[in-house]
């Protein structure tokens, strides 16, 4: 006996949200900066696809542009910039050696966070108040947000703060696009410019931190005293 619900049309919304979650998990399980960036790149590609799907459903051309910008800026430019700026940092500074919560536990926590965001979305917004796009993507965007936050809090490496921030930003982008069916294109471009500048500044800061203190561990930075 096969449930008739499962035999529905190929559900591109569900599949793209699965793709987004898999990319987020890749950030949680991997230890190396380059691995995180490739996971982020993959996530951004899926995000662009999701945005294009929303554009198709909503019939708004602005979202197509936002999807193209996502592909260009998040999948190509930001990883390139980050790789270029951190090229001179030593490799052993770029791997997460011991996060506050162990990797295997953090994977399980991330899975629970996904569950939590689904439960919360159900609680706050019953399905009847939302259309299909929003009800599929809202919990995913919330879990991207929560996992990004968790990655930022959990890891010692300062590079992680950047990656976590980028994941949160991806979640926010998905949130706004799914809920409002596209902001004004001017605002979108502003956000993209913002995130680009933010990444550049923070990566320069990271480089300076690594040069001055010879570590990227945020735990170490707390110990500094002016004496």
């Amino acid at each position: 006996m096969v449930d008739s619900m499962i035999l529905a049309q190929p559900d591109i919304l569900m599949l793209s949200s699965a793709g987004l979650l898999i990319a987020t998990f890749a950030v949680v399980v991997r230890r190396g900066f380059v691995d995180w960036l490739s996971a982020y790149r993959y996530q951004s590609i899926v995000l662009a696809g999701a945005a294009a799907t929303i554009a198709y459903f909503a019939g708004a051309w602005e979202i197509y542009i936002a999807a193209a910008l996502t592909l260009l800026i998040k999948a190509i430019i930001i990883p390139k910039v980050l790789l270029r700026v951190t090229r001179k940092i030593k490799d052993e500074l770029k791997t997460e050696a011991n996060p506050y919560v162990s990797l295997r536990l953090s994977v399980v926590i991330a899975a629970l966070l996904v569950g939590l965001s689904y439960a919360l979305t159900r609680q706050m917004l019953p399905d009847s108040t939302l259309d299909k796009v929003a009800s599929t993507y809202l919990p995913v965007s919330m879990s991207l947000f929560l996992i990004g936050l968790f990655v930022m809090v959990n890891r010692r490496l300062a590079l992680n703060q950047v990656v976590g921030l980028l994941i949160i930003e991806n979640g926010l982008f998905l949130f706004t696009t799914a809920l409002t069916h596209g902001l004004s294109i001017l605002i979108e471009i502003g956000i993209f410019a913002d995130i680009l500048v933010g990444v550049v500044i923070s990566s320069i800061l990271l480089y300076r931190i690594s040069q001055t203190f010879d570590t990227l561990d945020v735990g170490e930075l707390e110990k500094l005293r002016d004496d």
Binding site: R104, L105, V107, A110, L112, Y118
Partner: peptide
Amino acid sequence: LPDLLAMAIASSMIGVLFFYL
């Protein structure tokens, strides 16, 4: 190795979650 297996566990947990949606 437990890292990898934890990933498998988390993945199937999300699978269960997706089933109930």
